[in-house]
Amino acid sequence: MSAPTPLLELRHLTTHYVSARGSRVVAAVEDVSLRLHAGETLGVVGESGSGKTTLALTILRLLPPAARIVRGEILFEGEDLMRKPDREMRRIRGKRIAMILQDPMASLNPLFTIGDQVAEPIRVHEGASRGSAWTRARDLLKAVKISAPETRVREYPHQMSGGMRQRIVGAIAISCEPRLLIADEPTTSLDVTIQAQYLRLLRDLQREHGLALIFITHNLGIVAKMCDHVAVMYAGRIVELGPTRRIFDAAAHPYTQALLESIPRLGDGQRRLAAIDGQPPDLAALPGGCPFHPRCTQVMDRCRADDPPAFDVADDHAARCWLAARDAR
């Protein structure tokens, strides 16, 4: 069994974007609850606009001004981050919770050397001297498999390849030995073989440091390869949550089932893909009832009227679907 207190626990977290006049409300994250223990990897999968990035920004409280955390709790190491003053949040970000963003070029400052940027969090969070922070920076670059770190620290981001930049961003993220690392589509801009190198690196770092990892991705292959648990998001909600193997073998939500069916697999020959009809919904104008019902092949009358809550379908496995209510225990 896992540790009694989870590293991170979200309770009914809800984040909305509100337009300037308050006339348009986009429900980007709606009633999200989950738990993550130290050393575990959680995959958050969803399509664009499903709320997965807003969820990450909510955990870090890095939301843009138009966003409001409407309700919910973010318990990290037992403390509610919602109650922390901004000054304390700044000490947590980068030190205990770190984040890797999608575009490595945009997350590095082109005007500073690699050494300055890797050393910065160490100096800010730990008050280390420039010299000792730079020594640590060289070790970190070595840890993320950058060759010749002694010369690389004095170089600039434009002198690195895409894969190296992403590894440098990884080095910055782990520089203060965080407990939780949130990676938002960290490999989408990378080539297949470089992606494999990077995923292996993240897994090694995780094992060495006992990191908990949240992987935000649209790619179920990354989930299959990297994650212990999966949260499937649709229209701001977690529609299914459970152990990865169980989700792949016995998905309970029709959206998860359809998503798994719609992906071409190596070696499946020329089988026709099972496409999901329709489009992902507009979060400002959700259909009534279950937001997936207009695209669902198993829709019932009840789905058009009521938005289903999460039902437990097995140990550790829940689905937000009226069909699951039947099998719920």
Binding site: V192, T193, A196, Q197, R200, N219, A224, K225, I263, L266
Partner: peptide, 20 residues
């Protein structure tokens, strides 16, 4: 190497990964 680096379609799909 390219195809070994392709992502699996199921968590049980173990490919011998050739990391270049």
């Amino acid at each position: 190497a390219l195809f070994s680096a392709a992502l699996p379609s199921h968590p049980d799909e173990q490919r011998e990964e050739i990391i270049l």
